[in-house]
Design a protein around this nucleic acid. Sequence first.
RNA 1: GGAGGGGUGCCCGAGUGGUUAAAGGGGACGGGCUGUAAACCCGUUGGCUUAGCCUACGUUGGUUCGAAUCCAACCCCCUCCA
Length: 417
Amino acid sequence: MPKLRSEFLRVLTERGFVHQCTDAEGLDARAADGTITAYVGYDCTADSLHVGHLLSIMMLRWLQQTGHRPIVLMGGGTTKVGDPSGRDETRQLLSEAQIDANMASIKASFERFLTFGSGPTDAIMVNNADWLDSLAYIPFLRDFGRHFSVNRMLSFDSVKLRLEREHALSFLEFNYMILQAYDFLELARRHDCVLQMGGSDQWGNIVNGVDLARRIDQRELFGLTCPLITMSSGAKMGKTAQGAVWLNGDRLSPYDYWQYWRNTEDADVGRFLKLFADLPLDEIARLERLEGAEINEAKKILATAATALLHGRAAADAAAQTARETFEHGQAGTDLPTIEMARAELEQGPAAFALFCRSGLTASNGEARRLIKGGGARINDAPVSDEARSLSTDDINAEGYIKLSAGKKRHALVRIV
RNA sequence: GGAGGGGUGCCCGAGUGGUUAAAGGGGACGGGCUGUAAACCCGUUGGCUUAGCCUACGUUGGUUCGAAUCCAACCCCCUCCA
């Protein structure tokens, strides 16, 4: 590829965001010659996005940072259909009320990454239910359905995999790619959007939109996908002890989010810094060269930078501070999850395992008992050896709380009130 | 609508009347080694008031001293036919 003229594509390429592009030269020319508008779509299948969505959010962020206009498309309409990509099973059909609630809950995540408004490069948010809900079946089929070849649709991974594995694929889901293609056309017409971005699993859907716009409007659109990010060990990103790595703070606290990045594997640090932090590339190059235990410094910088992008600088610093106190000084930082217990209850000698469960460190009393048996449970940093161990006011430490630990990394505080 | 195959724990998957809370693998968690890393070794992996009890093999009933395993009906998935 010849040297890139546009800052936008240059930044994305240098940082490792680009997997495939329908026409890199053409897109580069458009982005170099003026302001372009690009979008990424997000379905409302849960009440929070997770780290898997982060890559595309960062692409929108860099788009805006390099002088272009991002559109966040909320899939209020497409969520009613359900994307079969990457799924063995039909998605559970969500009610409109659930979809609306999810959408409202997801929206907040974008506000830290993008600047919304009405200026030329301000981000806007749209909902595809606005045009999909009112489509009339027969006119839609005649105007747009005739441009889709079933032969070709069957060859797309999202469909092919289901068929090969002999799993159910409903006609409802089969329509998803058509609707996504139509979204792109609609955004091109309404907002002069010329580029759709997304994960590599969206390539087929994106290309469909590009093709549709060329056939119907003789409009030239572009598609750009980012790679599927896996950890060096081969595992997919985004799992912690508590489950998915959610972006909403009420699903996963800023402290736990910080911890997620802090525990990045050595081999991934450089790559993740480029993708998920907004540090200058020469700074990242310096951090990447750190070896052995020194690379932990890079991990802390990654964690703080990534957390700051999502939750703000103050929350990131607080998480870093708590981590320092907890791991480097053996104290308990204030950001640790905390539960409260009445003094009267403590005086009755509650079982330790029950408290581990109540604090959220374990999912059940049985799991807490097993943790104790396995030697992974500690109270005020002292290992718990007796499964029947109960707590008393003697366990309150100098600061007025009881510190519970499950393993070396997960801690919780019991504050006595 | 017809014929055949199938639905097992977080996932995959063995199990065709009792010793089955259910082999094996993956994942996850804990311990060891480390650097809050990876790799490797060990352990754990339904719930509870834990020497016991309860709930569980698509659903509901039935046979039996005893069922994930046998029978019936129903629901769902796949393949082929119409």
